[in-house]
């Protein structure tokens, strides 16, 4: 069952009954969410419905969503089911490119944050050399006392996020202040903030 119909070539059922074109009896439609202005209870009140166009003859069927709450069984009954005729191609991966200045800022902040954790004896000092060697997965494994599982690529930014989270969890830094700096000032603010805690 689906909540909304996707505007794609598809077979549709409404409360388990297939939608069939009244003119040519084909069952493949493109459903559009359409609306019209209605007079009552007021002007500019829109009535949303579906306008499904038969892909064979162009025949139009209009209907609303008859989903309802079944009081007797205490469940919400979704009315629509939709089988897409063409499976969508996978969405292209988003590749983020980090410029050199940002990368250096991330590494610098990561180093400072790790030094703080080492200083407070929350983690062994080998994390510093692991971070230097960009072994971020191992750094996170050490911090979270887990084995290194490469489920996703860990970059300096993700590693820094995890380390800052540790600093807040262990109450080594002021959480509210750090969050505010991360949101409003980013790296130029994080670096001096962390430095003030280093002895």
């Amino acid at each position: 069952m689906v909540e909304d119909l996707s505007c794609e070539e598809s077979q549709i059922t409404i409360l388990n009954r297939p939608l069939i074109c009244l003119f040519c009896e084909h069952d493949v439609f493109i459903p559009y969410r359409t609306y019209r202005n209605v007079e009552k209870p007021g002007i500019d009140v829109f009535f949303v419905n579906y306008t499904a166009v038969c892909t064979d003859c162009g025949g139009v069927i209009q209907f609303v969503d008859p989903s309802y709450f079944n009081n007797r069984e205490g469940v919400y009954v979704w009315a629509f089911d939709q089988t897409l005729l063409h499976t969508r191609p996978p969405e292209p991966a988003i590749i983020r490119i980090v410029d050199e200045v940002t990368l250096q800022a991330q590494k610098k902040c990561l180093h400072l944050a790790l030094r703080l954790l080492v200083q407070e004896k929350s983690v062994v000092d080998t994390v510093l050399s692991l971070a230097e060697e960009e072994e971020y997965c191992k750094v996170i494994a050490l911090l979270e006392s887990k084995t290194c599982q490469l489920v996703e690529e860990i970059n300096a930014e993700k590693c820094l996020a995890s380390v800052l989270n540790q600093l807040m969890t262990h109450r080594i830094v002021d959480s509210n202040q750090l969050l505010s700096i991360v949101i409003n000032e980013s790296y130029p603010g994080i670096e001096p903030f962390l430095k003030q805690y280093i002895k």
């Binding site: 166009v53 003859c57 162009g58 025949g59």
Partner: peptide, 12 residues
């Protein structure tokens, strides 16, 4: 023309 019933089609 006889009863006023409306049917709609998309031009394909």
């Amino acid at each position: 023309k006889d009863c006023g019933n409306i049917q709609q089609f998309q031009q394909l």
